[in-house]
Nucleic acid binder design. Structure first.
Length: 509
RNA sequence: GGUCCUGUGGCCGAGUGGCUAGGCUCAGCUCUGCAAAAGCUGCUACAGCGGUUCGAAUCCGCUCGGGACCUCCA
């Protein structure tokens, strides 16, 4: 199939035609979580956005190597100033656990949430702690190239020296002078030559738990070097797409570029893709602001108990209704909710918006069921081929899921109308619709149908068949008391009865 | 303070210089024993003020409002 995928590149601030370096292979790197606490739903939005990008690239036939790192070395609370406690070490001390136990717990929870949201696992999930030698080696190369200096067991990147021959602010669009003049005066910076310099390696204080040997003494790597080292190891010195939240642009990703250029002289990434933030009452959800809630709370509508041993959905202890949520929201509803907005726009969380998404999602998925029992006609009254083209056009335009959904709802309308005999579809068009739904709803958007599992589904089906049969007989006898009793009771149990000329059907809401 | 983004109908949310995005809500209609579901119809908006243009929500300027980054953060 012809593919005219365009991707918005932060580097050029334009949509660019996507041309992989070595087709059909595509290298994709996304900055993953730091495991000193549970991921919040804002983090999930970014990973979900990249899941769709990953899925669409796969759908187009690319052989994608998707690398998403796990940051599990103890970075400091104030990375720039080099002060504060190691975040993971702090949690370990507070909970009286080994740092790696902290990491393990949060990694487990993270993967469970990703799985509930139906994210495909990346090809490689490298940990920073598992790549200390690579980070040391890269740091050494940067020193050899003259872009880093050693000071009392610390290694710093020399930003001003680098900026003489390179555009340090190429990604953020910020001028070096502005950054030098507008950076806040910070404590504990006296070791650095320049105020923008950042650590490649930090000397560990005696109380620091996570530490490794290095040519510069015992210490731990700086925050940015792991992504440079690991992306280079698995994807090469230059690779196709690097993604992350847009809050990473000015510091983390800017420094990644500087490190890689300082090490090898080559720009590491061809397409930089950044997702926008999830907001709550218009304000960015972030750990530091404290306005976060957890996936398990959203999925259950309950509040995590203060003494819960974990926020991992399968292990969390819950305690009463969550003040923010009017109800529980299925992970697929949350996923659908996120897709209604383009990844580069902010997305504001609210019960109203989520409930609107829930209704839309159910309607779309119901139409999928209807599609499967649709009767073919001799002719078609709709142009399905055109809709399929529109779906590809939407995704090719920088992964515009919002537009894609508009086209899918057009399919839903046609399917429902055909079911009411107000539109006609040939068998060929029905098959094409099935293909569109499978490709875009299931494969690309990654929405799961809530199939009732195994045995109980069969039993329920059988019972429902019987009940609707009894109700139908009652209706034929004009015994509406009985028929309404069945319908109303089922409604209370969350099962909706839907009458039509062909008979009654049902769905669980 | 600096840099940048943004302001769309009751709500959420796309968007190209000229042609109905879509979802949800609400009202009416069709269908129906009643309802639900489904379909149809309607509510047709682009913060304000100027400017460019035959024509602007879409380009430019100013004003007002919201936000992000500059410090860890997806």
């Amino acid at each position: 199939m012809e593919n005219h995928l365009f991707i918005y590149n932060t580097l050029s601030r334009k949509k660019e035609a996507f041309k992989p370096l070595n087709p059909p292979f595509v290298g994709l790197y996304v900055c993953g979580p730091t495991l000193y606490s549970d991921v919040h739903i804002g983090n999930c939005r970014t990973f979900t956005s990249f899941d769709i990008i990953y899925r669409y690239l796969l759908h187009l036939g690319y052989k994608v190597r998707y690398v998403r790192n796990i940051t599990d070395v103890g970075h400091l609370e104030d990375e720039v100033a080099g002060v504060g406690e190691d975040r993971i070490g702090k949690q370990a001390r507070l909970k009286k656990l080994e740092p790696m136990e902290i990491v393990q717990r949060y990694a487990f929870g993270f993967r469970e949430v990703m799985s509930l949201l139906n994210l495909l696992p990346p090809s490689i999930e490298p940990t920073a702690s598992g790549h200390i030698p690579e980070q040391i080696e890269m740091t050494q190369k940067i020193i050899e190239q003259g872009f880093a200096y050693v000071k009392e067991g610390n290694v710093y990147f020399d930003v001003e020296k680098f900026a003489k021959a390179n555009n340090y602010g190429i990604l953020s669009g910020r001028a070096l002078d502005d950054q030098l003049n507008n950076t806040r005066e910070l404590e504990g910076q006296e070791e650095k030559k320049g105020r923008l310099d950042f650590a490649l390696w930090k000397k560990a204080k005696p109380e620091h738990l996570m530490r490794w040997n290095s040519p510069w003494g015992e210490g731990f790597p700086g925050w940015h070097i792991e992504c440079s080292a690991m992306s280079q190891k698995y994807l090469g010195e230059t690779f196709d797409i690097h993604g992350g939240g847009m809050d990473l642009i000015p510091t983390h990703h800017t420094n990644e570029i500087a490190q890689s250029m300082g090490c090898c002289g080559a720009a590491p990434v061809r397409y930089w893709v950044h997702t926008n933030m999830l907001t709550l009452n218009g304000q960015k959800m972030s750990r530091s602001l404290g306005n976060v809630f957890l996936p398990v709370e959203l999925f259950t509508g309950m509040k995590l108990a203060a003494d819960s041993p974990s926020a991992t959905p399968s292990q969390a202890k819950l305690d009463g209704k969550h003040p923010l949520f009017e109800k529980a929201y299925n992970p697929m509803v949350v996923r659908f909710f996120m897709m209604q907005t383009h990844y580069a726009s902010t997305l504001d969380f609210s019960n109203e918006a989520l409930q609107a998404a829930e209704k839309g999602f159910f309607r779309l998925m119901e139409s999928y069921k209807t599609l499967e029992k649709l009767q073919a006609s001799a002719t078609s009254s709709a142009n399905i081929k055109k809709i399929e083209e529109d779906c590809y056009a939407a995704m090719n335009d920088d992964f515009n899921t919002s537009i894609l959904l508009a086209h899918l709802f057009e399919c839903a309308r046609i399917i429902n109308s055909a079911n009411d005999k107000k539109e006609a579809l040939t068998q060929t068009d029905i098959e094409l619709l099935k293909k569109i739904y499978r490709h875009f709803i299931i494969d690309v958007l990654g929405l799961k149908r809530e199939e009732e599992s195994g045995k109980s589904a069969g039993a329920l089906n059988s019972v429902m068949h019987l009940l609707l049969d009894i109700r139908n007989k009652a209706k034929e006898n004009k015994d509406y008391a009985t028929s309404d009793q069945i319908r109303d009771h089922l409604a209370k149990s969350g099962i909706q009865v839907k009458d039509s000329k062909e008979g009654a059907s049902w769905s669980i809401n």
